[in-house]
């Protein structure tokens, strides 16, 4: 196997509960994502794509199988080490934005940098630059409830990018957005990928999946197809 695969999950299963009531969310999934890819994971709800996203983001651990992220078997790491991996290598974009309420946009973007133990001035600088990148430099003092959905999601993207992660993981990033904001966000993903960032998007909208270069289809805890997207 090539050592340069950024994400390499091998025969991963995830089971919730036990015995007769056990739910098999993932039934043996293997997936390799090289650096710089733009992958869309599609499937109906309950197909296991969100579980996959949680495992890819180190938010959850597989029941069985291995997960190699950038050359490390993440499943074996301790909780705190996983937190470190999340902070350094992964940027999350959630469907419900997940900004911290009553906290300014700038402070929200600064947060992962804070956990990465950066100095105050550097944090400020990098957070401002990330906000500029998503075009919200003039809203840095606004709180989440003072921003529109599209703006909130852009703050979330800025936050995901602030630490300069290798992977951008997005879970239904446009699920709560109108058409205009959706275009904005997807355009941003395209740009980021063009700059060499690895992007993994979980979605059930074909329109979103159209932007990716590779489409992975999920059904009942298994990958049913995995092919290049031609535009």
């Amino acid at each position: 196997m090539a050592a340069d695969a950024l994400i390499d999950i091998r025969n991963v299963t995830k089971t919730y509960g036990a015995g007769e009531t056990a739910v098999h969310a993932l039934r043996g999934v293997s997936l390799r994502v090289e650096a710089g890819e733009y992958v869309a994971v599609m499937g109906s709800s309950g197909s296991g794509k969100s579980t996959l996203m949680n495992i890819l983001g180190c938010l959850d651990t597989p029941t069985r199988g291995e997960y190699w992220l950038d050359g490390t078997n993440v499943a074996r790491l301790t909780e705190d080490q996983q937190a470190l991996v999340r902070g350094r290598k992964i940027g999350f974009v959630f469907q419900s934005f997940n900004l911290i309420p009553r906290t300014s946009a700038l402070a929200n973007v600064e947060l992962p940098l804070t956990y990465a133990h950066l100095r105050r001035t550097e944090r400020r600088q990098r957070a401002r630059r990330a906000l500029e990148l998503v075009g919200l430099a003039d809203r840095e003092d606004h709180r989440p409830n003072q921003l529109s959905g599209g703006q909130q999601q852009r703050v979330a993207i800025a936050r995901a990018l602030a630490t300069g992660p290798r992977i951008l993981l997005a879970d239904e990033p446009t699920g709560n957005l109108d058409a205009h904001s959706t275009d904005e966000v997807l355009g941003m993903f395209d740009e980021l990928n063009a700059e060499g960032r690895t992007v993994v998007v979980i979605t059930h909208e074909t329109e979103v999946a159209q932007h990716a270069r590779r489409l992975v289809l999920f059904s009942d805890g298994r990958i049913v197809s995995d092919e290049k997207v031609t535009r």
């Binding site: 938010l59 937190a83 902070g87 900004l99 947060l111 992962p112 630490t163």
Partner: peptide, 16 residues
């Protein structure tokens, strides 16, 4: 709880 989850997703360790 949700805020705690967000913080953890952003790399907050137990101690933080």
């Amino acid at each position: 709880t949700r805020e705690i989850g967000i913080r953890k997703a952003l790399g907050a360790r137990r101690r933080a």
